[in-house]
Structure formats: structure tokens, C-alpha cells
Design a binder for these strands. Structure first.
Lengths: 314, 314
DNA sequence: ATGAAAGCGCTAACAT
DNA sequence: ATGTTAGCGCTTTCAT
């Protein structure tokens, strides 16, 4: 009756509806799930629910799920493998149709186990090392290439790259992309590229790194930063030191966060299609746990603004 | 056995554990819930999962829930009352222990109905108009007072307030706070306060508003902005127009977002205790649906930086 | 068109 | 210390 009201006489239907209102009846979802064996819910475990990268992704996921009347449970592992496992277990126990995970470790054995038991698994922001596990990632090598290419196109022949540690795959990949592009342009990375590892991936880290460089007497003409906060630190330092951006030094960031376009010198930045990333991940899980695994690699784009060129578009 | 392994002989325990691994058994959460009648999960419906205000709140919530082995389901209503209702229904059907809602409408009748049926309800970022519904909010009147008081203390006698529409309660409240403080200082709001409603609550809105004012020949000495993005637009304009901040004009924002401290002129801003807000809301729900309702009002704080005073702390 | 009954997997209570 | 059983609320199937 609740599921096919049309199979029942209008009179009876009316009386049942009345009783429902009367008793303020709410269908028991647990019983329904138990019976159905499945549940129209997807679980997502991200590294940090407060980072725009992940929340924008979550928007993309939820948008897609809404269309199919699925719900999303979001949990934050805070980069802790134990928490990640705990939430995965919880999701699995509740019989979610699938889980999306930004893995906190390289080891994805526990995810393979989940997969084997019949729950869909999609890796987020990380290419899968296993053919049976789907993944949705963004090409960081390409991101590095885009930034380097742009700076080379602007006439620079030497790039300072304020990067994070190579233990973070994204950082290693972006470095690889930069090197590739320099080599393609006939430059020698040994001289044309200066990589500095920032102490922290924020504005302070950027400021400290670029200040150290300036004090050593090295005034770069082009700086590529591993994220927009680091770039913010560089822009701030340049202003303090009366170095003109982009006339004296071009700056490129990464992530294209909301404020990048709003700075007094709008920041050129590599944008990752976070929204699409989430939407695609949702699609993969909605195909059901038995659909063949797919490995999707999205391409980042470069958003050119005033920080890197005297002639920004528009 | 699963719930009290100590009640069983070690030998038997070993064999059961072996069987569990063997068959890769995962306990069925739905059945468990059905049996238990309750579920250690809290549902949260926020207006926009991509806004820092809500995600920082979510961190506070989850931190608290983790301690008690509860899980959090986050859903984004995107300010749509229908979506809000849909997610609430879903949460209720699944028998969550309680729901947290940033209501999309003034009408909270549907929330009262949820409450009557025995599910805990906490209003987020909105004082409750009903004694039976708990709420956790931040005092926006006080936020306005803090900003105004600071500017008055700095010697200003006239404040330009770039505000949002008063249909948004937060905006109306902050206005009220500013007026209060001016009156308390013996000033006449009719002359000491200029309120401009920005076209949009972002940097463009701030820039357009302040530019309009400057072009009308009015050069303010103190500007209070309804959020940090609007303030960013003002700072940007001041730089373009070669108006010194804070020497010629003091600027105060609201929210204290991550980049506020990182700007070349670090921004003074009213900070809301989002993390604590979430934690407290979690506590209220963890008390169980039968605990008496509480109405918690948090106080914002002013973070003074270089944009509003020649002598910022430290 | 409506009613009746079985069973999903678990836990708590009771029996051995 | 271990085994057995009833029943949570739903949906599906089968009988009326």
C-alpha cells in the first residue's frame, strides 16, 4: 500500500492516509533496509571536511545522488588510517551501496577487502593501483605542465617552484610535469628549475621560502606555487619588497580557491574540476557494485589572471 | 559473543574469530538498528556544505560525536525548504538519534513535528522561537557591537556599514548592534552611521558599494563589512585608489576566514566560534531526545589586525 | 481488492 | 559456558 498506492481503492487509501497523519507514522527505514538488503546511500570518507577541495567535491557528489534519490554520508578521516577504517566498517555494516575514499595511506588492502565483500569502492583524488577498484583523480603531472608552459610562453626561462614534499604524490607529480615541460622547451632543468620545499603549505610557508630566496640574492622572474595559500604568501612578500607582479615576477598558484580571483593582483591558478570529480565518482558507484571498474583521470585547467601576465584575458 | 567476547571461553572465541575472518563476515547494521530501535547517528542539514562556516561547524560536531562513537550524516539543503524536508524525513525514517538543522525558512512547524515524534532537534545558527526546540546560535547583535566599539575606540565618529539585506536576520542583528554602540557613545546614528546594502555578499559587491560612495565624494574613515569577502573588495579598491589602510580608512570584516590573516594588510574581523557551535549542538543531541531543550547563544570575538589600527597586537 | 504469513539478521532473555 | 528462541517493522508472496 505504501509502495504502490494505485493498487488500492481510493476509499481505503484515504483511510490509511488519515491514520498515518493521525498517528504521525513514520516508516522505519532500518526495517526497510533489512528487508531490502540494500540501501540507497553512499558513504564518503575524505581527508578533511573543512577543505574546499573536498567540500566542492561533496557538492558534486550530492548533486548527482539527489537525482537518483540516494543520500550521502560524509565522514572526515583527518588523515588518520584508523578513523578511515572505522568509518568504512560502519558504512559497510550499514550496507551502503558504495564508498568513496580519499585514502590516508598507500596501502589499499582494506579497500580491496570491502570490494570483495560486494560493496562498491571508488578512490577519490588518487589513481587506483588495482584494476578492480575504480578511481577518479586529477592529472597533477598535467597541472605542472600547464603552469610551466604558461610561464615559458610568457618568456620566462627559469622557474622557481615552491613545492611540498615529494612524499605527497600530488607534489611529486606536479614537479614531474614542470620538468617535462622545461625539457620539451629545450631547457636544462638543472639550471632552469629551482625547487624549494616549503616548511608548511600555507602563506607563512610561501613567505618564508621566497624571503629566503630573495635574501640569498636570487630574484626570480617566475614563481610557481603548490597551492594558492603559498602563492598568497609570495604576493604579500613581493608587495612588501616593492617587487612588481607580474612586471618583475610572475606568480602562479594551484587550486583556484574562491579568493584567488579577488586579490588586488588576481592570481593565475591551476583549477581542478572538483565538482565533476565528485559527480563522476557518484556515477561510478550508482552503476552498482558489479559494474566494471573504471579509472577516470580529469584534466586540470589554467585560469590566467593578472599575476602572471601583463595581458590577462578580458 | 560479538558484543561481550569476555563471556566466552578463549578457545571458542578463537574459533569464532577464525570463522569471521574465513567468511569475511560483516555484521549487518540494519538488522542491529532494527533490533535496537535506535541508531548512533546524528543527521545534520546545512544550507551549503561548501561554505567554511558550515564545514568548520561540521568539524566541531564530528569531533564530539567521535568521542561517543556516533556518526554524522551531513546533507546540504542548498537553502531549499523541500530538500530540507526531504533529508529530515530520510533521517527520521532511519531512526537517527537527532537532527541538526540550519533552517531554510522561518517556519519550523515541520521541525516541531519531528520533535513530537521523539527525535531530537537542534537549530543551528538560529535562536529557537519555540521552547521545546534547542538551538545554538551566535549573537550577531554583539558582533555588530564589537566592530562598532572597536572603531569608536580607534577615534572614529562615523561608520560606513556595508551590509546585506535586513531580511537576513544576521544582517538586521548586526545593524542593531552597531546602532546600539553608537547611541551608547552619545552619537546620533542618523549622521554617524551610513548603511549601504551591497548588491551581492562578495568582493564585487564590496567594491561596487565603496566605489559608489567614493564617487559621490564621500570618503569614509571607517568601514564595517558584513563579511570578509566584501571587506576584500573594499581593501582592493582602497589600494587602487591609493587610500591608505588603516591610516586613511579603517576596515573591519566578519567571519575571520582563513585568508583574512594572510592579506598584505591583515584584516580585522569578527570571529564566530563555529567549532564550538558544532560541538555544543552535538552535546545537546547526545543528551538524548528527552533532555530538556536548551537555548545556547555564543559570543563572537573581535580579532584585531592591521586593517583597522596602526597598532595591532604583536 | 484485501488479508495473512514468512523471513531478512540481529540481540536479549531464557534454557540447558 | 553455550544453545535456543522470540520478535523488532518491513516487503513480498500467496490465499482469500
Amino acid at each position: 500500500m505504501l509502495n504502490r498506492p494505485d493498487r488500492v481503492l481510493p476509499g481505503t487509501r484515504g483511510r490509511v492516509q488519515a491514520a498515518i497523519s493521525e498517528l504521525s507514522f513514520v516508516r522505519n527505514g532500518s526495517a526497510r533496509q533489512l528487508r531490502a538488503g540494500t540501501i540507497t546511500t553512499i558513504g564518503a570518507v575524505v581527508l578533511d571536511i573543512a577543505k574546499p577541495f573536498f567540500t566542492n567535491m561533496a557538492r558534486g557528489i550530492q548533486e548527482r545522488l539527489d537525482q537518483r534519490d540516494f543520500t550521502l554520508m560524509v565522514a572526515s578521516s583527518d588523515d588518520d588510517p584508523d578513523r578511515e577504517q572505522r568509518y568504512l566498517r560502519l558504512f559497510e555494516e550499514h550496507g551502503v551501496q558504495g564508498v568513496m575514499v580519499v585514502p590516508a595511506t598507500d596501502d589499499i588492502e582494506h579497500l580491496l577487502a570491502v570490494r570483495r565483500r560486494g560493496t562498491g569502492v571508488v578512490l577519490l583524488d588518487r589513481p587506483s593501483s588495482d584494476p578492480s577498484i575504480s578511481s577518479v583523480a586529477v592529472d597533477d603531472v598535467r597541472g605542472g605542465e600547464l603552469a610551466a608552459r604558461h610561464l615559458l610562453d610568457e618568456g620566462h626561462t627559469r622557474i622557481v617552484f615552491l613545492n611540498g614534499p615529494h612524499t605527497i604524490r600530488q607534489c611529486a607529480d606536479r614537479y614531474e610535469g614542470v620538468v617535462k615541460e622545461l625539457v620539451a622547451a629545450g631547457l636544462d632543468p638543472a639550471t632552469a628549475l629551482v625547487e624549494i620545499t616549503v616548511s608548511s603549505l600555507n602563506a607563512e610557508g610561501g613567505e618564508a621560502a621566497i624571503r629566503g630566496l630573495l635574501e640569498s640574492g636570487d630574484r626570480p622572474t617566475a614563481v610557481f606555487c603548490v597551492n594558492d595559500l603559498v602563492a598568497l604568501g609570495v604576493l604579500r612578500t613581493m608587495r612588501t619588497e616593492n617587487i612588481a607582479v607580474p612586471a618583475d615576477v610572475a606568480v602562479v598558484g594551484y587550486d583556484d580557491v574562491a579568493f584567488a580571483a579577488e586579490l588586488s593582483t588576481p592570481l593565475t591558478s591551476v583549477r581542478q574540476p572538483t565538482h565533476e570529480l565528485g559527480a563522476r565518482a557518484a556515477d561510478l558507484l550508482l552503476n552498482g557494485p558489479d559494474a566494471p571498474a573504471e579509472h577516470v583521470m580529469f584534466q586540470p585547467t589554467l585560469v590566467v589572471r593578472a599575476s602572471s601576465t601583463p595581458t590577462p584575458p578580458q
